[in-house]
């Protein structure tokens, strides 16, 4: 492959991951953390980044060993690779980002059973060389991060009137500047922070992406609601 073809392929991977095939808004994968960890933009951002790291690392590993993994045992092997990466992220976050770790809690180990990493391993990393696989995992993960941050931002603004509250506590002191209060404290609609808000905001944002895609003259994706 020439350099031009290469960079073309890479830009498709990046665009697919971030927008066209966005894990949450187009493929509707990885719904559990999407709903559970988007009560604020900061939580969504942290959850997304943890997932992105796991996805990048496990895609790279699977692609490196793609010729050694036989089709019959591939699913258990993928799950074990993802589980190992999740354990590393879990321990690292416990050590260095303890506040965020406490907030995300159960949903860090649950990245193992998130459908999104597994779907990308099966659909992409199993057939591609390591570098594109790493890129795909990473950018699918970043697309996931963007989706979670947006859902979190909408819920947080309507629900409690703030944006990126506690960012300095959870992500580090240098994030103090992005903490904002947009609405007075007593105007929050509590329902948006509670579970029903997660479902409704996600539903409406899927519609919003369809509207934007239609405006751009693209075919809208009616698919989704994938298997388990």
């Amino acid at each position: 492959m020439s350099n031009a073809e290469n960079s073309n392929q890479y830009s498709t991977i990046v665009k697919d991951g971030l927008w066209d095939n966005n894990g949450v808004f187009s493929m509707l994968l990885g719904m559990c953390p999407t709903m559970a960890m988007t009560t604020s933009a900061t939580n969504g951002f942290g959850m997304g980044l943890a997932t992105a790291v796991v996805m990048g690392a496990s895609s790279y590993l699977v692609a490196v060993f793609r010729n050694q993994i036989t089709t019959e045992v591939r699913i258990p092997v993928y799950i074990l690779i993802v589980a190992a990466m999740v354990t590393l992220v879990d321990l690292a976050m416990n050590a260095w980002m303890h506040e965020l770790y406490k907030v995300l809690g159960l949903f860090i180990p649950l990245i193992v059973s998130n459908c999104l990493p597994l779907a990308r391993l099966e659909a992409f990393a199993a057939k591609q060389p390591p570098f594109p696989a790493l890129l795909d995992g990473l950018f699918m993960g970043l697309g996931f991060t963007i989706a979670l941050t947006v859902i979190g931002a909408v819920r947080e603004i309507i629900g409690s009137g703030t944006l990126f509250a506690d960012a300095s506590l959870l992500l580090g002191n240098s994030f103090k500047v992005i903490e904002m209060r947009l609405l007075p404290a007593d105007m929050g609609v509590l329902m948006m922070i509670l579970p029903p808000g997660g479902f409704i905001v996600t539903g409406l944002l899927v519609v919003a992406k369809r509207v934007l895609d239609l405006r751009a003259g693209k075919e809208i994706q009616m698919a989704g609601a994938h298997a388990v």
């Binding site: 559990c32 999407t34 459908c115």
Partner: peptide, 9 residues
Amino acid sequence: FLGLCSFMG
């Protein structure tokens, strides 16, 4: 919010 994939699928 657990098991949402099967809930939708």
